[in-house]
């Protein structure tokens, strides 16, 4: 097996899981809610993007003909639809799982249950409405291969990696520089202190849920370049995102990035080793995470005091 393929595969997986994990991690650290409906957001925004792309495809083709312009326009439409619907779904999660119960007794467990129920309902609803058949999204990065320094990678892999880097950079930049970002970071460091300084929990939680929803929507579009959209397609990214967020230490963005890279490479390497193969990927990942968690109970990045309890 070629080492370059392993590398690119690893980075590709790391990019997409990283997007999911950072969404989960961010939501936990600022709002104190484990979002089990992240996978539902993923699947639902995949379907929304498919619907929009399907509806506009003929129109765009008729207007601009076949060419780079059409591809880039379709890419824009698909990404916007995915991210937009993801944000809307995030707002729905906010309305159902945060707003009614955030000041009630045992909020963490109850919000977890509510998001779990949303997940269950969404997956079954999609299955019921669209059927189990898989859908194909437009290839937003085109199809083809690129040879570079002896590395060979498909367009969609390179696109996913670059797009993730850009999205993450933008998100972190927004968190670092904007007023809302400051409020969110204050909420992450010390929720009570933030409230006492006049930061509204409700108006901080809404942008965070929408942002993480949009991240999940983008992850859905990016992953759908490699695999298809299906009602249950959100389950695996959810589990991966959760495990990576926990491996990195809940609430730690650098930890989540490191965890995503480690898991991505681990999966790619285990998949590439001949006598282990693709079937043992999950096995190896979980074994690794269990070992790490036993050695460091709060994950890689979660230094005991910084992580939200």
């Amino acid at each position: 097996m070629d080492i370059s393929v392993t590398l690119i595969n690893g980075l590709n997986l790391a990019a997409i899981y990283g997007l999911m994990a950072i969404g989960i991690s961010l939501l936990w650290s600022s709002v104190g809610m484990i979002n089990m409906a992240h996978g539902a957001t993923f699947a639902a925004s995949g379907y929304a993007a498919w619907l929009v792309a399907d509806a506009t495809k003929a129109l765009v083709l008729a207007a601009f003909g076949k060419g780079l312009l059409t591809t880039s326009l379709m890419a824009g439409i698909t990404l916007t639809a995915g991210a937009g619907f993801g944000a809307l779904f995030g707002a729905l999660i906010y309305l159902l799982a945060f707003l009614p119960i955030h000041d009630k007794p045992n909020f963490p467990v109850r919000s977890l249950i509510v998001t779990l129920a949303i997940n269950l309902a969404t997956v079954q609803g999609l299955l019921w409405y669209f059927g189990p058949k898989q859908k194909n999204l437009p290839k937003i990065f085109g199809t083809g291969k690129l040879e570079f320094l002896g590395l060979s990678a498909r367009y969609d892999q390179i696109g996913a990696i670059l797009a993730t880097a850009v999205i993450l950079g933008l998100t972190l930049f927004w968190l670092k520089t904007s007023r809302k970002g400051l409020e969110i970071r204050a909420m992450m460091q010390n929720p009570e202190g933030a409230v006492l300084s006049g930061i509204s929990v409700r108006w901080t939680a809404l942008p965070v849920t929408m942002l993480t929803g949009a991240l999940a929507g983008l992850a859905a579009i990016l992953l759908s370049q490699t695999i298809f959209v299906s009602p249950t397609s959100g389950t695996m990214p959810l589990i991966k995102g959760l495990t990576i967020a926990l491996l990195g230490g809940l609430g730690s963005v650098p930890g989540a990035v490191a965890g995503a890279i480690i898991i991505g490479f681990l999966e790619a390497i285990v998949g590439a080793i001949p006598f282990l193969g693709q079937r043992y990927v999950l096995f190896a990942t979980f074994l690794f995470i269990i070992i790490v968690l036993i050695i460091r109970p709060r994950g890689l990045g979660g230094l005991l005091d910084e992580a939200r309890k």
């Binding site: 119960i101 269950l120 309902a121 609803g125």
Partner: peptide, 14 residues
């Protein structure tokens, strides 16, 4: 029916 279970779960928890 799973949708129904999810709805009950949601209502009870909320």
């Amino acid at each position: 029916r799973i949708l129904l279970v999810a709805a009950i779960m949601l209502a009870v928890t909320l």
